[in-house]
């Protein structure tokens, strides 16, 4: 597949320029998130600055939750970074680890606090995992297929495979492949108290990134090509993504652990952080660096090779 465009938003800002700047200069310190219902607990987080949401397209979606807004920001940025594809041939594949859990917990919290018959319809309708894909589709007016894939570790890898299947089958000619995960109170509490994750040197993060993908075409029209690593191929550079948050057994555990640069500290720990490492890999491609391997440290996602 070819990558035609990349858009993203995270703690360090919006767009590939912001990522490039973060790679060179590092990022601002994390903010502190004190859990509203558990004031005794605070944790550093890499959250997205609120002012990034203050653009017309996001203001127009006034009911959208943070989960949806992050996806909209990144998707719009992605299309701005490339030649616009014919929208009637675009499909959306969205990967998420935890989905819009903040909306889900807000809705549940309302039921607990006010009663089963007093739930917020807005919170409920935004608690479904495909709400972000729906907002992106509505913003861009794409009428093709839109699907959301959920997995705590390998959602991005699965989404890449879905995109390939759609392109190979001719179901669409372009795939807007995105990933999004958000910081939320209850999940942070679970992470803090529940002993569910390896908390060593970890700062939770949030963000979204989108890749515009197509079937392989002329090299001049793409940012990079992307495919699973093939045996016998040597990369010029290896990036190791260390974004994963939940160390569970995975189907790809036999993959050898690679060594290489890791930039996951720039966006923080999140289930779908691997997509930011793919964006970094695309940035690292130069005439001297023709092939960059992107390896998931948790081995949940097969290694992907990006080539000029």
């Amino acid at each position: 597949m070819d990558i035609l465009g990349i858009g993203l938003v995270a703690h360090f800002g919006k767009g590939m320029g912001a990522l490039k700047d973060a790679l060179s200069n590092g990022v601002a310190p994390p903010s502190t998130y004190r859990l509203p219902h558990r004031q005794e607990i605070s944790t550093p987080v890499y959250s997205i600055p609120d002012d990034l949401f203050d653009i017309p397209a996001i203001r127009a979606a006034r009911r959208a939750n943070r989960f949806g807004k992050m996806a909209m920001l990144a998707a719009a940025d992605c299309l701005e970074s490339s030649l616009p594809p014919p929208l009637d041939r675009v499909g959306i594949v969205l990967a998420t680890g935890l989905g819009p859990h903040a909306s889900n917990m807000e809705f549940s919290g309302g039921l607990i606090q006010y009663g089963l018959d007093q739930g917020s319809p807005t919170h409920f309708s935004h608690s479904v995992h495909n709400s972000a894909a729906a907002y992106v589709s509505n913003m861009l007016k794409t009428h093709g297929p839109a699907t959301t894939i959920t997995h705590f570790q390998s959602a991005v890898g699965q989404a890449l495979q879905v995109a390939k299947a759609w392109l190979d089958s001719g179901r669409v000619d372009y795939v807007l492949l995105g990933a999004v995960d958000e910081i939320g109170e209850l999940m942070l509490y679970i992470f803090h108290e529940g002993q569910l994750i390896d908390k060593t040197d970890r700062i939770p993060g949030e963000g979204s990134a989108f890749l515009l993908l197509s079937r392989s075409g002329p090299a001049s029209s793409r940012l990079a090509s992307i495919q699973p690593m093939r045996s016998g191929v040597e990369a010029d550079l290896c990036l190791v993504d260390d974004s994963s948050i939940i160390p569970l057994p995975t189907p790809h555990q036999t993959q050898a652990v690679a060594t290489g640069a890791s930039y996951s500290h720039l966006w923080g720990k999140m289930p779908t952080g691997y997509i930011f490492s793919l964006a970094c890999a695309a940035l690292k491609l130069t005439p001297e660096v023709q092939k960059v391997l992107c390896v998931d440290k948790s081995s949940a996602i097969p290694a992907m090779l990006l080539e000029r």
Binding site: T96, G99, V128, H129, T147, T148, I149, H151, A165, S169
Partner: peptide, 24 residues
């Protein structure tokens, strides 16, 4: 191993994905 979360269309979309994966 794909878990599809498209609300009430999830099951039908899961079968559609299976179709494409088998064909591919």
């Amino acid at each position: 191993r794909v878990t599809v979360t498209n609300a009430c269309a999830s099951g039908t979309d899961a079968m559609g994905l299976a179709l494409d994966y088998l064909r591919s």
